Computed example of a mutant assay.
Amino acid sequence: MELFNNGEEVAVKKLHQMLWIDDEQFKNELNNLMMVQHKNIVRLVGYCYHTSQIVVEYKGNHVSASVVERAICLEYVQGGSLDNQLSAEPCRLDWDTCYKIIKGICEGLHYLHNDDTPIYHLDLKPANILLDKDMAAKIADFGLSRLFYSKQTYMTQSQDIKGTRGYMPPEYINRQKISPKFDVFSLGVIIIQIMAGKEGYYSFPYSPQKEFIKNVRENWRTKEQATMSPHASEEVNTCIKIALKCVEDDRTRRPTIAQIVNELSNIGVAKVHPFSGRTS
């Protein structure tokens, strides 16, 4: 953490040397991220880079080489990462706080996806969700993010899989396909880990879905000491059902982030057209 002259606290992250990224590409990507302004996304303050000359040995000779060091400056978020709140058991936070975090992640992701030139995060995981002093969620670490010029599906050229195992969807692992449903899959994993714990996430594929949903509901009712309101109970039920749809192996069966945000906003409201069916 560093302090600007104006008193603003910022986090400084030094980037690994990226020989395949030239300065113009680096600046363009950062400029795109600097335009991202949303309460559930960590704000990019700026960046800096420094070029120095070093002498290295190459094939028995000493040669001069340029080394570029890059760093990005981000708003400082006091509450640490969501990962610190998770364990084998359901999240240690109360349900209202958990729901606030889940909704915040969804709204931040919706902002990234809902544009003519959407940004796909591609490394959404609890370690990349930061919490501020009020426990509001902020999506961070756009090191693997991509800005696209449409919402269609893309095929990566590289066979080198980049991301975090467990949060990457099967169509990317097996066929290197990238679409908005990549982040939706990661979102589903995160919600299940919040609601059922990390052990619960790894065990849910072996439980009948109805039984798993029932167990999650009962665990939260017990955790909240049987004082959970009908509204909160509906939030629990809706969130776990959404999460299970998000981690469908068939990406066309996963909802879009817009459908998810709409479903959350409809909690407590009579639903005429809940999301269903296949989407690309």
Rank of each mutant, 00 (worst) to 15 (best):
V55E: 08
L19P: 07
Y58V: 03
I72W: 05
G46A: 07
H16Q: 15
S64W: 02
L30S: 01
I54R: 12
V67D: 07
A88V: 12
L86A: 08
Y47G: 02
D83R: 04
L44D: 03
N31M: 10
R43I: 08
Y76G: 00
K59P: 06
M18G: 08
Y76H: 14
Y49H: 12
V55L: 06
V45L: 10
V55G: 01
D96V: 08
L82F: 12
K39L: 00
R43H: 13
D22L: 02
E89D: 08
D83A: 10
E29Q: 12
G46C: 09
L82C: 14
W20S: 10
L82D: 09
C91D: 00
V68W: 02
V56I: 14
C98T: 02
Y47W: 15
L86N: 07
Q53R: 06
A88M: 14
K14F: 11
A71P: 10
L74R: 01
V77H: 01
M18D: 15
L93G: 07
N32C: 11
T51D: 06
E24I: 07
S64A: 11
I72T: 13
V56R: 06
R70H: 12
R70C: 14
K27P: 08
V63E: 07
V68K: 10
M34L: 13
V45K: 06
H38M: 03
W95A: 04
L93V: 08
C98W: 02
N32T: 11
N28H: 08
V42I: 11
V36H: 02
I21N: 05
L15M: 14
W95I: 03
D96E: 07
E24N: 10
S66D: 11
T97C: 10
C91I: 01
Q37G: 09
K39N: 00
V36R: 01
R43A: 13
V63R: 02
E29F: 06
N84V: 13
N61S: 15
H38I: 03
N28W: 02
L15D: 11
C91P: 04
H38N: 13
Q78A: 15
C91Q: 01
W20V: 05
R43V: 07
L86V: 11
K27E: 13
F26R: 01
E57S: 14
P90N: 03
R92F: 00
L15C: 13
G80F: 09
Y99I: 02
W95G: 01
N31P: 00
N28S: 13
K14H: 07
M18H: 12
V42F: 09
E75C: 11
H50E: 13
L93N: 08
D83F: 05
A71Q: 14
I72L: 15
E24W: 07
T97W: 07
A88W: 11
C48M: 12
D96M: 05
T51S: 09
Y76E: 05
Q17W: 10
L44P: 03
Y47D: 00
E24R: 09
E69N: 14
L82R: 05
Q17P: 10
H62M: 09
Q25L: 09
I54C: 03
V36Q: 02
Q25P: 12
I72F: 10
E29D: 14
D94A: 04
A71E: 15
V42W: 04
H16S: 15
D22A: 04
V36D: 03
C98H: 01
H62Y: 12
S52D: 00
K27G: 05
G46T: 05
L30P: 02
Y76V: 06
C91L: 06
W20T: 10
L44T: 00
H16V: 13
C48D: 12
L82S: 11
